[in-house]
Amino acid sequence: KFGRVHERAEGPAKILAIGTATPFHWVDQSSYPDYYFRVTNSDHLVDLKEKFRRICNRTMISKRHMFLTEEILQKNPNLCSHNEPSFDVRQDILVSEIPKLGKEAVLMAIDEWAQPKSKITHLVFCTRSGVDMPGADYQLIKLLGLSPSVQRVMMYQQGCFAGGTMLRLAKDLAENNKGARVLVVCAESSAIGFRGPSEDHPDNLIAQALFGDGAAALIIGSDPKMGLERPIFEIVTTAQTFVPNGDCHLALHLREMGLTFHCTKDVPPTIAKNVESCLIKAFEPLGISDWNSIFWILHPGGNAIVDQVESTLGLEPNKLQATRNILREYGNLSSACVLFILDEIRKKSGREGLKTSGDGLDLGVLLSFGPGLTIETVVLR
Rank of each mutant, 00 (worst) to 15 (best):
D359K: 08
Q139D: 07
R255N: 12
I61L: 11
C278R: 05
P23C: 07
V275P: 00
T260L: 06
L101C: 07
L146Q: 03
P317K: 14
H25K: 07
D137P: 12
S289E: 10
L123P: 02
E284Q: 07
I345Q: 09
I61M: 01
A136H: 00
N76C: 13
I375A: 14
E112Q: 12
T22D: 05
I18W: 02
G364L: 01
V378I: 08
M133E: 12
L342M: 09
L342Y: 08
Q321A: 07
V365N: 14
K265R: 11
T312H: 12
K273G: 11
W26V: 08
V131G: 07
H6L: 10
C337N: 15
L252E: 15
S334T: 08
P12H: 07
L339Y: 15
V338T: 09
T69Y: 11
P33E: 14
S81V: 11
L367G: 15
D47S: 04
F67L: 13
S349Q: 09
A21M: 03
F125W: 14
M60I: 08
N76G: 09
E7R: 08
Q91F: 01
L143Q: 13
R8F: 00
I235Q: 02
M257L: 07
E329S: 03
L48H: 12
Y35A: 05
E229D: 05
T377W: 01
L252T: 14
F369A: 14
F125V: 10
D343G: 03
T237M: 07
D88W: 09
I15F: 04
G135C: 08
W296S: 08
L254E: 13
F369T: 15
E104V: 05
Q29P: 07
V95G: 14
N83F: 15
I288R: 05
L342C: 03
D132G: 08
E344C: 00
K319P: 02
I93V: 09
G102V: 13
S62V: 11
L73F: 06
E276P: 07
G314R: 07
R381L: 00
C126W: 13
E310L: 07
E104A: 08
H262F: 03
T238A: 14
D307K: 11
A251L: 08
R58I: 07
K265T: 08
V5Q: 03
S311R: 09
K348C: 06
W296N: 00
L254R: 14
G287Y: 00
M60A: 12
I288V: 01
I120S: 07
L286Q: 11
I235S: 01
I18Y: 09
N83E: 08
N274D: 13
L123D: 04
R128T: 14
H249E: 09
S293V: 12
L320N: 01
L45A: 04
I55V: 10
C337K: 13
E97H: 02
V124C: 09
L123C: 05
D137G: 11
G301R: 07
L380M: 11
L48G: 06
A272V: 09
D88Q: 08
G358Y: 09
V236I: 10
T356D: 06
A17W: 03
P85W: 08
D362Y: 03
L146M: 00
T264R: 06
R4Q: 13
I341E: 08
H44A: 04
A304R: 02
F295T: 05
G246E: 14
R381H: 06
P134C: 01
D290P: 01
K281A: 01
E7G: 08
V379F: 13
S357Y: 05
T323I: 06
E310Y: 00
Y35E: 01
I232R: 01
N78R: 11
P285I: 07
E70A: 06
D47H: 14
E329M: 00
T59H: 00
K100I: 02
T238S: 06
E229A: 04
E71L: 03
G145E: 01
N78Y: 03
L252R: 11
L313Q: 13
L123A: 03
E329V: 03
I326L: 00
N83I: 12
R255D: 15
V267K: 10
G364R: 01
N292I: 05
Q139C: 05
G360S: 07
H65R: 07
G358C: 04
L333V: 10
I305P: 07
D290F: 09
T260I: 09
V267L: 14
I341C: 12
E329P: 11
R58D: 11
F24L: 13
L373G: 14
K355M: 06
L101K: 02
S349E: 08
I232A: 03
F2S: 08
L363C: 04
L333Y: 01
V378H: 15
V306S: 11
A304K: 08
E256L: 05
I15L: 01
N292A: 09
T40W: 06
M257G: 14
D362F: 00
F52I: 07
L107Q: 14
P371E: 14
V5K: 08
H249P: 11
F295G: 05
P269Y: 13
D28R: 09
S349D: 02
K100L: 09
V27N: 00
